[in-house]
């Protein structure tokens, strides 16, 4: 029974990640797109936790919530903030 609950939590987080991915791709302000992509990463971290993979959670949270946004933040700061239509 607990396995079904974990799968349902995965499903809810999957829906959140789907919305966040869509918003990240259509957003023209690259800084906001980066924030939506961080939301998607957080949802994926919950998915990994419910799928009994604590090793992946421990590598995914520093990489996808910490280092990806920092890296791309530096690139956005040094180049352009808005995507041309």
């Amino acid at each position: 029974m607990t396995g079904l609950v974990a799968l349902l939590l995965c499903l809810i987080m999957g829906v959140i990640s789907l919305i966040a991915t869509y918003l990240a791709i259509v957003e023209r302000d690259l800084l906001k797109a980066l924030l939506f992509s961080a939301v998607q990463s957080t949802a994926y971290a919950f998915i990994y936790y419910s799928l009994a993979a604590p090793d992946i959670v421990l590598v995914y949270i520093p990489v996808a919530v910490g280092l990806y946004p920092l890296l791309l933040l530096i690139v956005i700061k040094k180049t352009e903030r808005y995507e041309r239509p």
Binding site: S37, S41, I47, A53, I56, L72, V75, I76, T79, E83
Partner: peptide
């Protein structure tokens, strides 16, 4: 999408989705 930085953001989501699939 035309912006190169937007392509990079999309690339991270792409690789993460395929990794989740393997898990």
């Amino acid at each position: 999408r035309p912006s190169l930085v937007k392509k990079l953001i999309a690339l991270t989501i792409f690789s993460d989705s395929l990794n989740s699939f393997a898990i």
